[in-house]
Simulated assay, not measured.
Amino acid sequence: MDPFARVPLGQTGVTVTRLGMGLAPIGGLYSPVGDQTAIGAIDEAWRHGVRFFDTAPLYGAGLSEKRAGRALRGRDGLTLSTKVGRRLVSGAEDAGIWSEHSGAVPVWDFSAEGVRTSHRESLERLGLDRVDLLHLHDPDEHFTEAVTEALPALVQLRREGTIGAVSAGMNQSAMLTEFARTGQFDCFLLAGRYSLLDQSGLADLLPECERRGISVIVGGVYNSGVLADPHAGASFDYRPAPPEVVARAQAMARLCERHEVPLRAAALQFPLGHPAVAGVLVGIRSPEEAADAVAMANVKIPEALWQDLVAAWLLDPEVPVP
């Protein structure tokens, strides 16, 4: 694939590079990053040709947005997305998985006013006058409010030209499929549910989006770690991977080695085989990780590898591949 090709999102004028960078890690996910390393990671991705970046207020309680803004201000050809559904308020509660404290904590808010406020405050943290794409962020327990209040507010922002595309980002496909049927969404961010290990998004969301001309951006291509480095104790779906999942990923890695293809490359490129998938997001926390993602996106993968994965019962023969 050409990881830097620009692909339109749905019927909008918004385009993304096939390879995008997820900026949750630069918010201090699990361990501190610091401003210099975070900005260096974005600079490295940009140097290679990546033009699509995704952040959120949740990530480091504003740190990711602030660092992204410092790195991206004044650049041309940028596509930037952020999220609504959690507003930041002053506080110093336990940050959980976020290791750097920003002086703020997130609170759920899918009200119409909450969406407008969150959008405005994101622009202030970013130091920008616009984001191209706005996602409803993890509305799993807030479906009614998301549909009746947040979604109309996003549609109004799109109508005003304040944003270019309306989306929702989740770790499940069922609710996103319900959102697709409203006819109001341009694209979706599906995390962890269309990967080499988990193709559950193929049962509902992906065919629905293909029928409706809705684009899908796939995140979590490494399933939170096990497809990057399949070892005992690796993470799968944000918790320790069961032994059978590790064994399956290791079997995939062995087949990849026969074809001189890193498992990371196969995992990153696999989702792009589906016609509804516009691009993939890979999380980065350092210049080295940004460079590695670009390298994996550029690996030439022989058709025989996909055939061998099918022959070994590691991939369903009906699943589309690049």
Rank of each mutant, 00 (worst) to 15 (best):
V155G: 02
A45H: 04
R248H: 05
P271H: 00
D132H: 14
V245S: 01
Q156I: 02
F143E: 14
D94C: 04
A41N: 07
L133G: 01
V147L: 15
I301N: 08
D229K: 14
R239L: 10
A234G: 06
P262V: 10
R120D: 11
H135D: 10
P8K: 09
P139D: 08
V294W: 11
L154W: 09
R116K: 14
E141S: 13
V107Y: 09
A71T: 01
G10T: 02
T117A: 14
V261L: 12
K83D: 00
Q172G: 13
I42F: 10
W108L: 13
L63G: 02
M1H: 13
A253T: 10
H137V: 03
K83R: 12
Q269P: 06
L9K: 09
G69V: 04
G273M: 00
I214C: 03
A249F: 03
A92K: 13
G62T: 07
I217V: 15
V310N: 01
W306M: 10
Q199V: 05
H259Q: 09
H119L: 13
L176K: 04
V107P: 01
A24N: 09
A112Y: 10
D237C: 02
F179E: 02
V16M: 05
G219P: 00
Y59D: 05
A203N: 11
S224G: 02
G22Y: 12
V310A: 08
G225M: 06
V277W: 01
A24I: 01
V7L: 06
P242Y: 06
K300W: 08
V147A: 14
A267V: 03
E65L: 05
E208C: 11
A297S: 14
T144M: 03
A234C: 03
Q199I: 01
L157H: 04
D316Y: 01
D129T: 03
A191R: 10
G279N: 04
F236I: 00
R212T: 04
A295E: 13
